[in-house]
Amino acid sequence: MNKISNFTSMSEMVMENSLALHVYYDNNTVCRFVNKAVYEWFGKTPEEVIDKMTSKDLLGSLYEMNKPYVLSVLQGNNEQFERDIILPNGETRCALVNYYPNHNNGIIEGFFVDLVDITPLKSLENELLISNNMIGKQNKRLLNFANIVSHNLKSYSNNLASIVELLQEAESEEEREEMTGYLKNISDGFKTTINHLNEISKLENQITINNEVISINEYIEKSIQILKIQIVKSNAKVINLVNPELKLLINPVYMESILLNLITNAIKYKHPDRDPVIEINCIQENDKIVLSIKDNGSGIDLQRHGEDLFKIYKTFHGNKDAQGIGLFITKYQIESLGGEISVESEVNIGTTFKVYLSSKLV
């Protein structure tokens, strides 16, 4: 086997038996050395390659992508890049490729190529990016939660102190009754706020999410029964298009909460001039399960409110019953399940929420 002169016997042995691919080309890009890993990467034996194949011959369809690096290294530059390579068995691997020139007394006599499989590292990197992104979102929610606690409790504290002071200064029974009424309103509001914050706190502190096999159709029907009075009062029509045979491995408590919140919203924000029609479906889309809830309600101006849609205590329709917590909790639960939620909406036309779940079909 022909090997270049500046390889020591030890480096030859290491390169020859390494799982990484090592290649040496001369100035005409003819292969003068290659180790046994070439068979794993390109399905060629060293005997088929050495002194017989050029860089273009060996790389095939990859050559045009790598050509700029070949030209650059022949000018004396070091080049490093990543490349997806399809192996002879059809598997795709991500490789870290190093091109570096072979200098001999200031003259470039060819170049070396080292190719190392970094597929596991790239997979780990992608997992870390997803995890860091999720942690970043959760940290933002925690900061938002802390700001809400601080702001709301401070507001209640200040108002309470002011009313107590006015109550002490009241000169008539009528004034005292009025101040007492204010105190009751503050007390009711404070209780509601604490309940909301308690719900969010439970979500933030839940460590494990227990999944069960459920019929999504049955949970939709259950939600319809729970909301029966609201559906009848609003003269709403709920159309369940989900296949009764569809079963998912998912957290049932979260699933019920997600359905109740989204169906309730579709009823609450109905169009003033027509009865609500709510269409629910669930389909497989690539590697995701997509739950969609479509209504013909008032719609949302996403250009104005899109960024705030899932933020806590944000409301957009002037509805006196709106509290701005349902979508916040829904988004949190969906993301805790490893999913995402998107919205399509047009004012006076309606809204469609889509929940993308990584849950498994059973």
Rank of each mutant, 00 (worst) to 15 (best):
T352H: 01
I86N: 06
P120K: 09
M134I: 11
Y269R: 02
K137R: 15
L197V: 01
Q168L: 14
S358Y: 07
D51Q: 12
L259H: 10
L142Y: 11
N319Q: 06
L248W: 14
T180E: 09
S55M: 12
A322F: 05
N28G: 06
N66M: 14
K137F: 10
R274N: 06
R176A: 15
E218Q: 12
N98A: 05
Q138W: 13
N133S: 15
M10F: 15
T119H: 03
E221T: 02
E171P: 00
D57L: 07
R141A: 07
S131K: 14
L143F: 14
E109T: 15
N28Y: 10
V113F: 06
I231M: 01
S292N: 03
S131V: 07
N348F: 07
S155R: 08
E279P: 00
K247H: 14
N211R: 15
I85G: 00
V70E: 10
I108L: 06
S157P: 00
G76S: 03
M1D: 08
T352F: 01
K44P: 01
E344S: 12
M134L: 14
G338R: 04
L291W: 10
E16D: 12
N78I: 11
N210T: 14
E48A: 14
I224E: 06
N139F: 12
L357R: 05
L246Y: 11
L19F: 08
